[in-house]
Structures are given as C-alpha cells and as structure tokens.
Design a binder for these strands. Sequence first.
DNA 1: GTCTATAGTCGGATAGAC
DNA 2: GTCTATCCGACTATAGAC
Lengths: 229, 229
Amino acid sequence: MNDPTPSAGRGEPTRDALIRAAIEIFGRDGFDAASTRAISDAADVNQALIGYHFGGKPGLYLAALRFIAASVSARLGPLVDSIEEQIAKDGQARTGKKVAERSLAALQGLLEAFVGMLASDESAAWARLILREQQNPSDGFDVLYEGFMHRILGVASELVARAQNRGASAADCKLTAFTIIGQAVVFRAARACVMREMQWSELGASELADIRAQLRRNIAAIVQAEPSR
Amino acid sequence: MNDPTPSAGRGEPTRDALIRAAIEIFGRDGFDAASTRAISDAADVNQALIGYHFGGKPGLYLAALRFIAASVSARLGPLVDSIEEQIAKDGQARTGKKVAERSLAALQGLLEAFVGMLASDESAAWARLILREQQNPSDGFDVLYEGFMHRILGVASELVARAQNRGASAADCKLTAFTIIGQAVVFRAARACVMREMQWSELGASELADIRAQLRRNIAAIVQAEPSR
DNA sequence: GTCTATAGTCGGATAGAC
DNA sequence: GTCTATCCGACTATAGAC
C-alpha cells in the first residue's frame, strides 16, 4: 500500500524536505544512529510520512544516496561531458605533444572542480555520507559508484594515459588517477587534521586557492616525470 | 566507586578484551550505533563490566582511542625516531644535494610504512574509527591528533622542505605533505571504490607493491619538480 | 571483580481517523 | 496525504547478590 516514491503529486514537497533532511542527519550521525524522528523534525513533517513515502528508514536512505548522485552529476557532469568530447575528438591519437598538453590541462581542471566541490559547505553532508559508504559499503554503494564515481574515474584515468604520453598500462593509469584524486580527497577525509595542522579557522577562497595551486603543480609533476626512477 | 581504569590488577584481561572489541564494534558501527551489548558479547565479558571499568560507554570509547594512538605509535614510532635523528644530524644544513637525497628517501620510506599500515587488516578497524573522528570530531580527536598525527605530519613537512631544496614556506611544505599523505590515505578512505575500479579482490602483497611503487614515483616527481609551473 | 535483573528511555513501524 | 496514538523491541545504566 505504500509503494516507495509514488512519484510526483501533492506529496512532492514532503519527499523533497525529507530527503534533504535525511542527507544532513544521516551524514552527521550515520544510518543507525540517525533517528527517523530527528529527520522528520528537521524536515518539519510528520514522522509517519517516512513510512508512507519511502517504505521505511532504509528506503529513505537509498533515496538520499540517489539524490546525492544526481547532485554530483549536476555539478561535475557538464565538465566531464566536455572532457569526453575532447577525448573523442582527439580520438585514438593518444600521443603527441598537443594532446598531452590538453589532457594535462583537462586533468588539472577536473581536479580543481573536484576539490572545489569537496571544499564547499553544500557538499559537506554528501561527503560524510559517501565516506561512510566507502568504509562500510551497504546496498546503496552501487548507487554512488554507478552514479558518478565510475565515470569520473574513467575520464581521469584516460587523461592520465594521454597526458603521460608513455606506454603505461591501463591499471597503472588508474592507480595514478587514484593517487591524484587522493590529493583532493584528503582535504575532506582528513579535514579536522588539516584545519588543525594548517592552523586554518575556515577553508575559504584563499585556502582553496592554495590547495588548487598545489594540486596543479603536483599533477603536472607526476604526469611529466620521467618513467625512470 | 568506579574510577575509570583502576589500573592493573585482576581485571586487566577484561579491560583489554573490552578495548579490543570496542575498536572493532565502534569502528564498524560508529559511537551511537554501537551497543555496549554487542561490545561485551564480542569481548565475551559481562555487559555491566563496561560501567565498572570505564564508567560507561564514552569512557570505553576514549580508552579505545588511546589504545589506537599507542598502537600507531608502536608501529611507526621507531621509524619516525630514526628520521628525527637524521634530521637532527643534518641540523640546519637544510640545503645540499646529499641532504635532499636522504630526505627524499626518508619521505618515501615513511609513506611506504604508512600505506602498509593503512593496507593491513589489523589497522582496518583503527582506520575506520579515525576517519569517523575526522568527519565528526569528538572530545577524543585530541587523543589522536596529539597522540601521533601531529608528530608524523611534522616530520613529513620537514622532509618535504629538505627534499625540495628550495625556499618554500613552512605552510607550503605542510600542504605538500598533506597531498602526499593523501595519496596513501585514499587507499583506505576510498577503499571500496579502489577495489571495484581496479577489479581487485583483495589488497594483498602484490597490490601493495604496486601502490608503493606508484607512491615512490609520485613523491620523487613532486619534490623534484621545478618551482615554475 | 563479576554476575543477574531491571528500571527508564527511545527507536522504528503501523493502525486507523480525517 | 497527513495526522495521532501506540506497540514492541533494544538500548544504557545501575542496584544488589555473590
């Protein structure tokens, strides 16, 4: 009688408010510790409506993850689209100085956008939920992986391959992509440590600019380094 | 009547078992979601003993964090000691090719040890707890920061400064240290994503060797890159 | 120090009026 | 679709016997 997400209708504002509150509370407390009462209070709707609209707490959690995947896609999707176009245009010409230069610039741009997202207050709750899912994957992890992770990692690896301009295996390029992405992720995953050690009181425009400059420099260095060790 | 941690005595095996179980359960479920029953069951002791030995659930949590800090220090402390000795021996001679080479090698060694720790099954539960504390710092975060984070970040930054061999500010070196450490952290923080994307079924010796080689290469590239961009 | 038993609280789910 | 009311299970903490 309570089909999850009965699609648009009069109850849409209610579902929306519940999802937004759920991201906040689930992100802060985790799935088990978050109470449906806290979520419904924050959303200013009746607690019983969670059961009606989402079938229960797990259904609301999945809906929240889908919302996050859609939000990340909305934020990074256009940039990834344009990069994929560029890759398609360059086609199989995976070597050449021009291609390498373009690919490096695209990779730097992608990571600047990525770290910008990780730094934003808006994404703080998402990020907490995503980190939780990574540490303890639930059924919902697929939603995130298929929703945006796989695609972003794909373009990042391909850009590494083209920017490096040497015969690294696909697995090597993926590994390189992860280490590069890790340089951005650390500023969310270890945020408390970063703020304390850097003696920052906030991660604002000025701090973000420093981080981005560091990332640009590191990415160029990694990708242009001689294969020899 | 129940002074927290009444020090050694007949109850020590009980306290030890509780702490070990607490790290596992708190790491898996988080502070709120973890139940004292689950912990006492896993430790195979009576639930009421948590109150007796640690004063309650929060006391047990703090004890677990202290145990983690001690474990990390035991694992990385000796290496950090030797690096600090080397730094002291090189003294204020922060420039020079030999010092730079030694410092780069030390930095690479530190990160290989660090990522080895992050990869180990033993540390899986620690890492989850630490990541939770970073995302949502409690009173216990100090225990971790003062316990080992601050010290490790300190030597890492100093090594960056000496290995780079150019006039980067202390803040820049710290930032560089974070991006380098982030390259290791990502393999714990985004482990689920890494395993899936790399199509790994385990993170064993072979995978760890690939990661270490990648880290060595990246660190050298970052530290030796020209300051220009 | 360790145990049993329980008091007191809070959580998720749902029945049923409107 | 939204609300009130409530059932029932699980939790922390603690009293008190041994």
